[in-house]
Design a protein around this nucleic acid. Structure first.
Length: 382
DNA sequence: AATCCGGGGTG
DNA sequence: CACCCAGGATT
């Protein structure tokens, strides 16, 4: 069909002139492409660039990544979000080292078998790094195609994605899979933007069906995500005394689940007051009780700050209280009990550490705790 | 097919 | 501030 031919030819011509100079485009190194594609999942190019440069500097090869301590990998990912991407990437690096001698495989089955690599990323690696005619359909691509071809199906449906993938395969010009897939995404990022697309500078405007129908702003059709549910939490920022003077208490999150194995300030969920936020006195009482139960010898002193953190499905409302380490004999005994007591199950004991500002270098925190800690150390004059 | 995973940008 | 961006794993 003429509309398809026009699209492929003009898009490629545009890309040859407008392609951005990006760190992972300076070499055709499959490892660079792979790392960049994982980072670019749900994350914008401008955000990714500094993280990518630091990551490659720290882990120049697949083997360096495979052999690194996981905490180093998480620390390098700190602030980028979706930390399972980092954990999966390292697990996959170990796969590549052991199964493929450290060489990123170029066959579909092997690439798809890598941890953290699904249909999109497999297609991106195979096409961009190895120029194989595989589709790499992400949000950008679905937006561009839904507009140009006036596809009014819900892009959240698997069947719509499958249709788009078959369409891309038809559109890839012989021998140009790498450039073509990158061009599609580049157009979505720079021209065919979610809001107010820049149709007047678009290389394929002439035969764009949505543009002709005046529907470009209405596409793509997409079911809305559910709003995140609110959660209310009280957080303890425990200031050490005596041998812990000038340091604060942090703990490591559980091995699995949300923010797995990252570090944080001790906190617990509380019921929501009518206004959401609990009044200080009850919140401090709850926190005091919880700290004691955890075997932490500390007492809440005063409200320090509030913070928020939004995940895709949860919205944390955090009330942070400055607490003071106490040497309560009861607490010490409780702590000893907890340490010695085992319920028979191989449960991992929560790790607690006392850290100062410099020690933060060694621990990976979610942004919300990173900011609370940085702000605290900046203003505290111990 | 539905749910669980962060963080930043735009208007 | 409301709204947007969305791949992969798991169940």
């Amino acid at each position: 069909m003429e509309q398809k031919r026009h699209f492929s030819i003009n898009l490629l011509e545009w890309y040859d002139k407008h392609k951005r100079d990006l760190p992972w485009r300076r070499h055709r190194n499959p490892y660079y492409i792979w790392v960049s594609e994982i980072m670019l999942q749900q994350t914008r190019v401008d955000t990714v660039i500094p993280f990518f440069n630091r990551f490659i500097e720290r882990f120049p090869t697949v083997e360096d990544l495979a052999d690194a301590p996981e905490q180093d990998v998480l620390k390098c990912w700190e602030g980028l979000g979706y930390y399972s991407r980092a954990r999966n990437l390292q697990a996959a690096a170990k796969q590549v080292k052991e199964l493929h001698g450290g060489i990123v495989p170029d066959d579909k089955a092997s690439v798809f078998a890598l941890k953290g690599v699904g249909p999109y990323t497999a297609g991106a690696i195979l096409s961009i790094a190895f120029n194989k005619p595989e589709p790499a359909v992400d949000g950008n691509v679905m937006r561009v195609l839904s507009r140009y071809f006036l596809i009014e199906e819900d892009i959240m449906k698997g069947s719509t994605r499958a249709f788009m993938e078959s369409l891309v395969v038809e559109l890839i010009p012989d021998g140009r899979a790498s450039d073509f897939n990158q061009a599609l995404m580049e157009l979505g990022a720079l021209v065919c933007t979610p809001k107010s697309p820049h149709c007047l500078t678009c290389p394929v405007m002439e035969h764009c069906s949505a543009r002709q129908e005046g529907k470009e702003e209405q596409l793509p059709i997409k079911t809305k995500a559910k709003p995140p549910r609110p959660e209310y939490r009280v957080v303890a920022l425990v200031e050490g005394r005596g041998e812990h003077s000038g340091r604060v208490l942090i703990r490591q999150r559980p091995q699995e689940g949300l923010l797995a194995r990252m570090w944080e300030l001790p906190h617990l969920q509380t019921p929501a007051a009518r206004s959401g936020r609990l009044p200080d006195e009850p919140a401090m009482d709850i926190l005091a009780g919880a700290l004691l139960e955890e075997g932490i010898a500390a007492r809440p002193i005063a409200h320090l700050t509030d913070a928020e953190h939004t995940f895709s499905h949860i919205h944390w409302n955090l009330q942070v209280y400055r607490c003071r380490e106490e040497d309560l004999p009861q607490a010490a005994e409780l702590k000893a009990m907890y340490a010695a007591g085992d319920s028979g199950e191989p449960s991992v004991q929560t790790e607690y550490r006392w850290i100062d500002e410099q020690d933060m270098q060694h621990y990976a925190f979610p942004n919300v705790f990173l900011k609370i800690l940085q702000n605290y150390f900046k203003h505290s004059s111990y």
